[in-house]
Amino acid sequence: MAYRRSYSLSLPIGLLSLFLIINFVHLAAIPSASAAATTTNVRLSVTRKPSKSLPVFREAPAFRNGEECKKDLIHVAMTLDANYLRGTVAAVLSILQHSFCPENIFFHFLWSHYDKEIYNNIKNTFPYLRFKVYRFDTNRVSGKISKSIRQALDQPLNYARIYLADILPMNVNRVIYLDSDIVVVDDIEKLWKVDLEGKVLAAPEYCQANFKRYFTDDFWADPELSNTFKGRNPCYFNTGVMVVDIQKWREGGYSYKVEEWMTIQKQKRIYHLGSLPPFLLVFAGHIKGIDHRWNQHGLGGDNIEGKCRGLHPGPISLLHWSGKGKPWLRLDSRKPCPVDHLWAPYDLYLSKKPILDE
């Protein structure tokens, strides 16, 4: 059996009382003019210097393989940036915690520029993590991104998933791509072992969704454009959770095929969202559909207001806060949605109040 070392992340009552007393004395001694700057990301016995604006995290427990685990790697790709770092850390923790063979998971992080503080944050939070960081050249999408209904969708790093086959090492033939606003509550090896049946990618499909709404009236009115779906049974799928056959992607030149639709979008507006519609244009109706349990999406609400949503019926292996509302922001605002409390146990964030070293 695989085994895990786990540690309580809560303080004993006696220690907590001591912390509150010390915390009060410490804060009272801080000059008011510099209080905000001094208390940000500070610990009483300082082990890390305050960062510019990055959160600081508790060190994650160590997760170890058991004797039954083989050495076959599971490749997971995610983007890495300051705005979503807290989500990424929670996602990584959830994956490791629920994996039967956690040491078999290799993370491939993509960022737009080298950031030593972000790198050290990951390294210090997960000392045993197997990972590598790659620079995504944002010039690849310069001039190809069209303004969408939400600014976060227009960030160049949001398009990095299109170029996984170009960025990852040649010996990586399959990868699971995950957004940073997810938590996994099942063994990710089950997702890794999905039979793609010769398809380039696998993802949960949602054929009951109104597929037409992902494209403009001008798109559907143009027979040359809309005929791209002729002979296909296109269904919506969310690109935040995908199993990708990297080798087939390379052979088929799919990065270029997605780019072609982005170029058309610049000439004639045919959709309103970010990187999702060009994926649908290339792959909808041609993917391997997998169980919906692997993407309980939409928990962040819509793209405009981010209103609270409940869970869909059925079993759950992955929770996804797609949409405007992110759980860490709603929790910090003290106006969380009920589903945000499902994300909270994986949050290793150290609050801005100084705390004692464990």
Rank of each mutant, 00 (worst) to 15 (best):
M1F: 09
R4E: 11
S8A: 09
L20R: 01
I22H: 08
A29G: 08
I30W: 03
N41S: 11
T47N: 14
S51Q: 06
A60C: 14
P61F: 07
R64Q: 08
E68T: 00
C69M: 06
C69W: 03
A77K: 04
T79F: 08
T79Q: 08
A82Q: 12
T88E: 06
A91D: 10
L96N: 03
H98G: 03
C101Y: 00
H108R: 01
F109V: 13
L110E: 12
W111E: 15
W111I: 09
N120F: 15
N124Y: 14
R135Q: 14
F136P: 05
T138K: 08
T138R: 01
R140F: 08
S142P: 01
S142L: 06
I149N: 12
P156E: 06
I162G: 09
A165P: 09
D166P: 08
M170W: 09
N171V: 04
D181I: 03
V184H: 03
I188Y: 02
L191P: 01
L196C: 05
K199I: 09
A203G: 14
E205C: 14
Y206H: 11
C207P: 13
F211G: 09
F211M: 12
F215R: 05
T216F: 07
D218G: 13
T228R: 13
G231Q: 03
F237V: 05
V243D: 02
V244Q: 13
K248H: 07
G252L: 06
G252M: 13
Y254V: 05
S255W: 03
E260S: 10
W261G: 09
K266Q: 10
Q267Y: 02
R269L: 08
Y271A: 04
L273R: 15
P278S: 02
L281S: 10
A284F: 13
H286I: 09
I287R: 07
D291L: 05
R293D: 11
R293K: 11
G298W: 00
N303Y: 15
I304T: 15
E305R: 15
E305V: 12
G306V: 05
R309I: 07
L311D: 02
L311T: 00
P313R: 07
P313V: 07
G314Y: 01
I316W: 02
L318A: 03
K324S: 09
W328E: 14
R330L: 12
R330E: 07
R334C: 01
H341W: 12
P345A: 03
L350R: 10
S351V: 05
K352V: 14
I355A: 07
I355N: 04
D357I: 10
